[in-house]
Design a protein around this nucleic acid. Structure first.
Lengths: 143, 143
DNA sequence: TAGTACGATACTAATTTAGTATCATTTACA
DNA sequence: TGTAAATGATACTAAATTAGTATCGTACTA
């Protein structure tokens, strides 16, 4: 059971990289090189991010991608939604054409609680959060 | 993202059925019929439960399965472990040959918290819990 | 107008989950 | 004693999801 798939993971990394370049336009080629992630896969991911309005794209020579939103408006939960769909832990048992077995239903409550917990932990996490974290860590290392 | 796979789901149902028959020996054929679950799939699941010591089996004519432990000693978390492996939400990102990107590491904390929350919600859930729940519900309906 | 970049989309490959089949062994009992 | 009923072990197939690639088209810049 994975909380984040590779898509999401790479999206986070790509966005982080772009964010740290302060408005420079970044090509997939550069991202791929710097992050050591397959060019074509990254390409697809960036296309999706663009379609979803998280980055905007500039075509042609000198083109590339920039953030379409400030880092504190880019939420991890949105990335998860985009690449993995809504978080629904109980799809299997509960939505399964009306679970034919009443004795499992106590689990629904538990699962709802877990779902809420996941969301409440992840809700405050934005691209900015992740970047700040990095700065803090870097700072600590220099002390 | 599923919290429980079908394996686990069916295991719970099968064990519940067996538990409610008060020590009678139950065949896979009966389980399959009553629970409307594929015979061969159930068969495999019961074989695993047997190997893992949650039920014991009686071979030959008149044989079948019984619980090898009282219902309050059969934990949902064990079933999850058996059929899905340990709950490890961060396998992808963190254990991934040392996540090459420091900026993701704040997620580790969050993910650990979520993992703990899942475990603490599910830890108290035993077969007995699930059965009692059913009794309560049935009771309520008769009032 | 050539080259560089993204847009759309279809395709393949790998992994995980779900489900089936088969042969061997044990047991009850007619 | 031998046959049918049951599980044990294990290998296999199928479906679904995730991961990754390829290709052709379009826009932009120099």
């Amino acid at each position: 059971m994975k909380l984040l798939t590779r898509n999401t993971d790479y999206a986070v990394r790509a966005l982080s990289y772009i964010a740290m370049e302060n408005g420079r336009t970044i090509t997939v080629a550069e991202l791929s090189e710097e992050l050591k992630i397959s060019w074509s896969f990254l390409r697809k991911i960036l296309q999706i991010l663009s379609r979803e309005g998280l980055v905007f794209s500039i075509k042609g020579k000198g083109g590339g991608f920039r953030l379409a939103q400030p880092a504190n408006r880019i939420f991890l939960l949105d990335l998860i939604r985009i690449f993995q769909g809504l978080i629904r832990l109980n799809a299997c048992i509960i939505n399964n054409t009306a679970c034919p077995n009443i004795r499992i239903c106590i689990l629904k409550k538990k699962i709802d609680i877990i779902e809420k917990s996941i969301i409440s932990e992840l809700h405050p996490v934005t691209l900015e959060t992740l970047l700040n974290q990095q700065n803090e860590l870097l700072h600590l290392q220099t002390i």
